[in-house]
Every structure is written in C-alpha cells, then in structure tokens.
Computed example of a mutant assay.
Amino acid sequence: MVRATREQSGDLTIQEMARRSGFSEPTLRYYERIGLLGEVARDASSGHRRYAPATAERVVALACLRSSGMTVSGMRRYLDLLAEGDSAAAAQRDLFAAQADKLAADIEQSQLRLTYLRRKADLWDARVRGDAAAEKQAVEDVTRVMHDITPKD
C-alpha cells in the first residue's frame, strides 16, 4: 500500500475527488478496486485515500470519458492503449472515433425526444386555448416524431 503524508500538497481526499470528478465515492473506490486508477495513496496517520495530482488528472479524464457514454471496458481499453504510447495512436483514434459516433447517435435520439416533448406541449397548449386547427397540427407533428423515434427493423 502506498502511504502519503498529510502535508503532501495537491493531494485530494475522496470527498474532494468526488466533487471534482462528479463520480460518487463508491464509484471511485470501485474504479480503484478494478484497477482503473492504479493504487491510490493513503494518509499515513488515518489510512484515508489521498489522490495525488497525477491520479486526480486520471480520474478527471475518466470522468470525461464516462460522461460521453464510454463503458468501463472502453475506459480500460483507453488506459491500456495509453500505456502503449505512440505505437497505439491508430487504435486510440479508432476508439475515440467510435465513441464519438455513438455519442452523436445518442444526441440525435435525445433531440428527437426533445422534439416529441415540445410537440406534445404544443398539443396540450392548443387544447387549453381551444384551437382545434393547432391541435390537429400538433397531433400530426407528434405522430411524425413518434415515427422517427420508433426503431426501424
């Protein structure tokens, strides 16, 4: 186990790391346990985790990847490729391009869901106003969006 002294500057507690990264404390512990973070230093007197600047940087990078929808296995692949250095540049490019494509598809689906909600609000607004023509148009718009959302076989 790596030991750290309280005086080491820049080290973060697990609470501070959780706030900075957006990960919960249990997630940070899990990522440490499965090897994504390496061994996290411990305070010599209390045994509490202390995230050194390099580890904190890794956690923030993983938080960015996770927020983009990357899986734990994808994050592990990223770290493995990172350890290979420049020789893995093409594989890193492919990993990030694939994740970007997946995120773009997710954003497109989210946009459709947003449009659906707005058209439904339009429908109910037309009903509140008693505007039959606007309500009919809103129903048509909702139906069209629902068709776009429905997966095609």
Rank of each mutant, 00 (worst) to 15 (best):
G10S: 03
A18L: 06
L28S: 09
S9P: 00
S9I: 11
S67T: 11
E25S: 14
A88E: 02
L28T: 10
R49E: 09
C64K: 06
D80G: 13
Q8G: 01
A44S: 14
E25V: 15
T5H: 14
A91Q: 14
S68C: 15
A54V: 08
V60G: 02
S46E: 05
L79V: 00
S67A: 15
G10F: 00
S45R: 15
R76V: 07
T13L: 03
L36A: 11
L82N: 12
M70D: 06
F23G: 04
P53G: 00
R6H: 13
A89F: 07
S9W: 02
P26H: 05
S68I: 07
R49V: 06
R76Y: 01
S46R: 03
Y31G: 05
A83H: 06
A41V: 04
L95Q: 06
L62R: 07
A41Y: 07
A18K: 01
G38K: 02
Y31Q: 00
S68V: 06
A4D: 12
L37N: 11
P53C: 00
S21G: 09
G74W: 06
L62M: 13
Y51R: 02
G22V: 05
I34G: 05
I34E: 08
V59N: 06
A41C: 09
G10W: 03
L79N: 00
E57H: 11
E39F: 08
S87N: 09
L81C: 01
V40L: 01
R6C: 07
G38T: 01
G38Q: 04
A90R: 13
P53V: 01
V40F: 02
M75C: 14
R77I: 03
L82F: 11
G47M: 08
E57I: 10
R20C: 00
